[in-house]
């Protein structure tokens, strides 16, 4: 299943629509890392609301995406993790350490605003 990637202002938003295979995840990773440079975005949001299972590969890929995006000079926020998924993930020891998370898309946008604003002011000094 292809994940649509939308450009919204200075951000890139990827909304996962359903269960993804490992190849889908890798393609998402390639596309996101590519688009972030192409659109000169400051932030990326990956919305996983539709996922009701998150396995170790998905977690690992999300983590890689966040680190790669960081290297490309932007911030990543993962949003919309379901309570059951969060519970299962912590039980399996799958954490998203050092990666910003938010309740839903709206919260994610607010968080990105804060992050990029903070970065913006620090670079102006």
């Amino acid at each position: 299943m292809e994940v649509p990637i939308l450009k919204q202002g200075g951000y890139v938003i990827a909304t996962i629509q359903g269960a993804l295979s490992d190849e889908d995840l890798l393609r998402l990773q390639d596309n996101l890392v590519d688009r972030v440079g192409k659109y000169r975005s400051k932030g990326v949001i990956v919305d996983v609301t539709a996922l009701d299972v998150m396995d170790s590969f998905a977690t690992k890929t999300l983590r890689s995406i966040a680190y790669m995006i960081k290297l490309r000079g932007a911030e990543t926020v993962i949003c919309g993790i379901q309570p059951e998924v969060a519970f299962a993930m912590t039980h399996l020891g799958l954490t998203l350490e050092g990666i910003s998370t938010a309740l839903d898309l709206e919260e994610g946008l607010v968080l990105l605003d804060q992050r990029t604003h903070a970065r913006g002011t620090s670079s102006e000094r």
């Binding site: 993790i81 993930m89 912590t90």
Partner: peptide, 8 residues
């Protein structure tokens, strides 16, 4: 950790 995954 689970709470953090939900952004809290």
């Amino acid at each position: 950790e689970a709470s953090r995954l939900l952004g809290a």
